[in-house]
């Protein structure tokens, strides 16, 4: 009806096509809200891992256990491999847990990657300088703290799990305590560990707060605790791990004489 002449001055917002809906639960992962949900759940799992990993590592302070003739940390390592034996053969449950961890990790990274791409496609930078009000360093550096953590994990696995590349020269499978001490007495390694722990804690600080939002765990009755809880867990991880690193670096924790 209307006699419209197309004009260079007309505007319409660019629209992305809706993807064809996959069956549940994959359909959830097709949307950004669903991806954030996956990111939050996997993040929760990964934070759980980080906390337990740290608890395990704190055994480095127990050091040598004469009754067992071994370092407590080594005993703990063996315990993990022996989990639920004989229900599972030696080391199998640990591998199942590791696979779960790897899956969570992969999903966490993939969702982060695809959301980042979506966001940069949706965003247009301002010409003038932004004056942030609520966005803090943690929230705005998630991408970078995430990438640092990822790079660090590769380093960490090579250094202490696989014993290759940057690992210390006398690395030996199963001698967890000695490997750890051997690595961290090297200042360069210690500094890498410190940077990584700081980045991870910052990542977790925003991550936990963000998780509550993404999962919709919001209730005015307990919302006031959410910031504190994310701060608390991040601080716990920071302090716990830094203590280990600094104690070894400074020699407060070392090898048992004569072993």
């Amino acid at each position: 009806m209307a006699t419209t002449t197309p004009s260079r001055n007309s505007t319409s917002p660019p629209m992305r096509p809706k993807p064809k809906q996959l069956p549940f639960p994959l359909s959830l992962y097709q949307t950004a809200v669903g991806k954030k949900w996956v990111m939050a759940l996997t993040g929760l799992g990964l934070v759980g891992f980080v906390v337990f990993h740290m608890l395990g590592n704190l055994k480095v302070f127990i050091g040598w256990v004469p009754e067992e003739g071994a370092y407590d940390l080594d005993i703990y390592g063996e315990f993990l491999r022996e989990l639920l034996v004989p229900l599972f053969p030696h080391g199998v449950l640990l591998w199942i847990l590791r696979l779960g961890l790897i899956t969570m990790f992969a999903l966490h990274i993939h969702s982060a990657y695809s959301l980042t791409r979506l966001n940069s496609a949706s965003n247009q930078p301002y010409a003038a300088k932004r004056d942030w009000i609520a966005a803090n360093f943690a929230s705005r550096s998630m991408r970078w703290t995430g990438v640092i953590t990822l790079l660090y994990i590769v380093f960490h696995l090579a250094d202490l799990t696989w014993g290759v590349g940057p690992a210390y020269s006398d690395w030996e499978y199963g001698r967890v305590h000695e490997n750890l001490v051997g690595s961290l007495v090297r200042p360069a390694a210690a500094i890498i560990y410190i940077i990584a722990v700081v980045a991870l804690s910052i990542h977790i600080f925003h991550g936990i707060w963000s998780m509550f939002q993404s999962l919709g765990w919001s209730n005015p009755n307990y919302d006031w605790m959410r910031r504190g809880l994310s701060m608390g867990i991040a601080a716990l991880i920071l302090v716990g791990n830094l203590t280990i690193i600094l104690s070894i670096w400074t020699g407060a924790v070392g090898l048992e004489a004569g072993q």
Binding site: A2, T3, T4, T5, S7, S10
Partner: peptide, 12 residues
């Protein structure tokens, strides 16, 4: 009149 493009349009 379309205020963004200036086009003058008829509608019946």
């Amino acid at each position: 009149r379309n205020l963004t493009t200036g086009a003058v349009e008829s509608h019946a």
